[in-house]
């Protein structure tokens, strides 16, 4: 290779990131070479900060810089609802709706034996003491796939003895789309889950 070793090393690092191929990795490395030193320092610091400052909330297991996280320590939020999700990104998505004013619990994934994820790999046991603490309803908001479904089944059975109301989010049609463009599977599930008006 007729290039500097450092550039190669950096490209090598980029190539390990998801969605980045060899060519893109090289382009990024050369771009960084052209950047001002100050900008590069800021970028490097941002990378290290993510590792150093971010941790998991001791209550809900969401990612946070202050423990407990901003949602868990917000007194205005309704403490009697807990919405269980798979990943921190799901919390972000639900928060954008501004509809849900309760608390969250982030499992850190879904049950998937093929990937070596069983109940012990998820933050399940952290959920149980929270539920026994005056909670009215636990909403299970897993992804609508096989793994999410098994996780929902597992949790609903586990939570039964607590006498708390357990619900799951509805499956159906996306808003703003036309019925005619919906795929058959979604449409037939939406028919199944119809409600009285």
């Amino acid at each position: 290779m007729y290039t500097a070793e450092s550039v190669e090393q950096l490209a090598e690092q980029f190539a390990q990131l998801p969605g980045i191929g060899r060519k893109t990795a090289h382009r990024l490395a050369l771009y960084i070479l052209k950047m001002e030193r100050e900008e590069v320092t800021t970028l490097a610091q941002a990378l290290v900060n993510v590792k150093d400052k971010v941790r998991y909330c001791s209550v809900c297991s969401n990612i946070t810089e202050s423990d407990p996280c901003r949602i868990c320590s917000d007194v205005k939020r309704d403490q009697s609802f807990i919405c269980v999700v798979e990943e921190p990104s799901d919390v972000l998505a639900l928060e954008k709706t501004r509809e849900f004013r309760g608390l969250y619990h982030v499992l850190g994934g879904a049950l998937s034996p093929l990937d070596g994820i069983g109940p012990d790999e998820l933050r399940v046991k952290e959920l149980l003491p929270r539920v026994s603490n005056g909670v009215q309803e636990v909403i299970l908001a897993m992804n609508p796939n096989v793994e999410g479904e098994a996780t929902t089944l597992y949790l609903s059975k586990l939570l039964k003895p607590f006498g708390v109301k357990v619900t799951r989010i509805a499956r159906g049609l996306p808003m703003g789309s036309d019925l005619e463009f919906a795929d058959e599977a979604t449409l037939s599930r939406a028919l199944e889950g119809r409600v009285a008006v």
């Binding site: 049950l111 093929l114 098994a150």
Partner: peptide, 24 residues
């Protein structure tokens, strides 16, 4: 596939899969 993985793991490790298999 997921359920078979639990059964196979349990067989190899000679342990009881316990309630991990129930949702599957």
């Amino acid at each position: 596939k997921q359920r078979n993985k639990i059964l196979l793991d349990a067989k190899i490790a000679r342990h009881d899969p316990g309630d991990a298999i129930e949702p599957w």
